[in-house]
Design a protein around this nucleic acid. Sequence first.
DNA 1: TCACACCAGTGCATCGATACATCGATCACA
DNA 2: TGTGATCGATGTATCGATGCACTGGTGTGA
Lengths: 359, 359
Amino acid sequence: MTAQVGVEKARVTIRHVAASAGVSPTTVSNLLNGRDGRMLPRTRQRILRAISELGYQPNLVARQLRTGEVRTIGLVVPSVANPFWGGFARAVERETLQHDYQILLCNSERDPARERAYVDELWSSGVRTVIIGSSLPSLEHLEHAMQRGLLLIAFDRESQPDDPPGLVTVSVDNRLGGLLATRHLLSLGHRRIGFISGAIATVSRRQRLAGYREALGDSGIPFSEELVWANGGEQGFGDVDSSGRGELGMRALLRLQHPPTAVVTINDMYAIGACAAAREESMRVPEDVSVVGFDDIVLAGLFNPPLTTVRQPLQEMARYAIDIVRERGHDEDQAASVVMAPRLVTRESTSPLPEHLDA
Amino acid sequence: MTAQVGVEKARVTIRHVAASAGVSPTTVSNLLNGRDGRMLPRTRQRILRAISELGYQPNLVARQLRTGEVRTIGLVVPSVANPFWGGFARAVERETLQHDYQILLCNSERDPARERAYVDELWSSGVRTVIIGSSLPSLEHLEHAMQRGLLLIAFDRESQPDDPPGLVTVSVDNRLGGLLATRHLLSLGHRRIGFISGAIATVSRRQRLAGYREALGDSGIPFSEELVWANGGEQGFGDVDSSGRGELGMRALLRLQHPPTAVVTINDMYAIGACAAAREESMRVPEDVSVVGFDDIVLAGLFNPPLTTVRQPLQEMARYAIDIVRERGHDEDQAASVVMAPRLVTRESTSPLPEHLDA
DNA sequence: TCACACCAGTGCATCGATACATCGATCACA
DNA sequence: TGTGATCGATGTATCGATGCACTGGTGTGA
């Protein structure tokens, strides 16, 4: 027979298994849940045989209703179309797979209203854990959910003073990252260093910019507003068109009366866009302008030129996040937030300041 | 009070709402489900007020158990770390968002065992619709699920003669895509055209290769085995390291005694890797070797050089897939598979055959 | 006046699994 | 012989929402 749309064969339930094995449903349930310490081997065998003969698969929905435990984690990211978030989603899923969790995917475009709607819907679905890659400065739109008992893990966003109590964050030291990137350019002799970003509307962006300023300050270079392109308005900074914005930013900086000889970008997608813009303006990277990215997505190493960038240890961060989820409840103490160390990866998009450009 | 990990406030149920509004749970349920045709406006008001006062949110798990309807779609892709699949996941989610479906994300790495495990788990969770981006030649490992009533929609994979009955496919005409790419190179004067792919272990790859052969044949050019690099073994072709493979392939072809002057690649990530390899071998793209990609991911236009590629209409394909899901049941007829038209997007990674290379 | 339709809701059983209290049988030991 | 511990397994209520049959009261027409 063909599998007809909408028609569904009668489901095999725990009761069928019980009947077939000649035991009660409770006994089957006990075996399924590992409470088979004092079960006769014969009984166990009979049940197992019935299960495989009938092709029984437990109904997780029913189980969830009864136990209240839902082994699903909500994953809210700006957009998986962005390779960085795609990579992160993959990393998270890799960790959860080993521990029997499922991943419900939500793309928020960094819109607080959507984040809220998603989180409410996830809560309705029984999900009690959400990993959010939003990085918005305020998370108050999710505070009501946390008060109900939602475990919220913020990724790519260091803890803030006025964060909701109970919030756990897993992130890289973004300030240090910005510092490393800028210091690298300084060490190559650059003095006029631009900064390209979308709206500085997230915590991580704020921190990266702070690191940039700090590095400049350390070298006694005055901070110049005109070298920071952080345009983008409030809307549409959902990481969908990061590279397009990087392009715009680079073009704007190159049109300055004194254009920068190097730029720090807010992430690799911006860096890629920035390189494209430079190319269109007949500038070579890194000969005419150096570019540093952030994240070290897979593409960074494959781009032409391969990007110098600041690496985030994605898999480790994902592992840490899932460890927190697994410890939930086992531990009386509140899980601790963590800040991991970024690492500068030097490739070919940066080079020493050419002599003819030296001030 | 702080939101403590593991501690959860008592949930507000439909019964609380009913008590607060002075009606029965059934009445509340009726309102919630739009069966309020003959309900007194006063009653409706009272219920609505109780709902908002108590902050009631229906328990979807309980609803699902009772109704059997689960508004969640399983999305099985090789890996969202690959920008093509990330883009696809985003496109699907954009469509489902408007229709109140949720997306459960699964990365299969194209491993049939994992696909099977995922689909079984999805079934257990009550999911009755799965969109799979596997493209494996055989789907028999999922046939048992379809026989139970699973609606399986295969993406990026044209229908095959021995596909399980009931399978719906949404794909681009891959043969035509391969043909367009190759014909484009032929029209630029190229005669020695390579083909770079991972193992030809999916339907779409087979078709793209077929289009390549057909185009060559149309131009009277004999097919040469040595120009086709389709290595990769069976394992690990989960699209995770596509670009790495593209690199290997390009390097191998360039080391031939008579290297190709142009290559068709199985997708944009391979193309990007191929370009990187060319660069390492001190070959310029497109001056020394032309490269055509496939998919037209966002990055294709941003790469250096911007990639000539064959575009898949991702959003339309996603929309069609979701339309099928929504029609499920409404329609007696089986949903129809569809093959959409690919389109060649000409950018800068291809150029006419230089005279000095002309045979 | 009676039968019947209609109105605005209600009560109960149910989806499939699990928590918890409890069962009858067997056995050890005072 | 009686007590109670142990064993292996069972019966029932329950999670929260919904489908369906049904209610008491009112209005209508013959």
